[in-house]
């Protein structure tokens, strides 16, 4: 007998993501999901973003990691609420994990939640978390050819951050080739060049984010 199913494989994840989105919209909280390889500078970018925006907005962080809570500790050390999610081996966050993390945050007292996804350039692109924007961070040492190897993450991101821009002269990173490859995938996404640990270029990124936080309030 033939069963006609025609249902999305990630149906449950998508339904819970929609619930998260409705809950966050009701509380007026803007959520950005940062995706990158391990070591690209997600935590450093989060700390730099907090430094740039903490005077204007109430911020919290959800840290996704396979194990450990070092990133959440780093954020908390700056006096910012942080929830650590350990995925227990899973290589990406899912909407169910975010839903539980939201339970632990005072949503009505927040303007911005930054999610640090698990270091991975593939899976996080398939999982809607209920965020407002997915933003990918590439770091200069990873090379300018990454849009050719991982096209989807560039195609679905609302903005691209090129981090460790201070190391440009050390690596043979062809910025023009990189920009042209990203434009073929996603001409709408701005590319912010930053050095998260030094604060260079963070203002333009913070301004882009700030405009979106305002619109969501």
């Amino acid at each position: 007998m033939e069963l006609d199913l025609s249902r999305p494989i990630l149906e449950k994840n998508d339904a819970l993501a929609a619930e998260n989105r409705a809950r966050l919209a009701a509380a007026g909280v803007y959520v950005v999901d940062l995706m990158a390889s391990p070591g690209a500078g997600k935590t450093s970018t989060i700390l730099a973003t907090i430094a740039a925006l903490r005077d204007r907005y109430r911020i919290a962080v959800i840290e996704g990691d396979i194990a450990s809570k070092v990133d959440a500790e780093k954020v908390k050390a700056h006096g910012i609420p942080a929830v650590q999610i350990n995925t227990g081996g899973a290589c990406h966050l899912e909407s169910r994990m975010i839903s539980r993390a939201l339970d632990a945050l005072p949503l009505d007292d927040l303007d911005l939640i930054i999610i640090e996804n698990v270091g991975n350039l593939v899976c996080p692109t398939e999982f809607d978390l209920g965020e407002n924007a997915k933003v990918m961070i590439l770091s200069v040492p990873e090379g300018d050819d990454k849009p050719l190897k991982y096209p989807r993450i560039f195609a679905i991101s609302q903005a691209v951050i090129l981090n460790k821009y201070d190391t440009l002269s050390v690596f043979d990173f062809d910025e023009r080739a990189f920009r042209s490859a990203v434009a073929k995938l996603n001409g709408a996404a701005p590319i912010f060049t930053i050095a998260a640990t030094k604060g260079d270029g963070v203002d333009a990124w913070a301004e882009w984010l700030g405009a979106r936080i305002e619109a969501a309030r």
Partner: peptide
């Protein structure tokens, strides 16, 4: 697309 289209089962 990421869709389960159907299945053939014995009932």
């Amino acid at each position: 697309e990421l869709v389960i289209s159907g299945a053939d089962v014995d009932v």
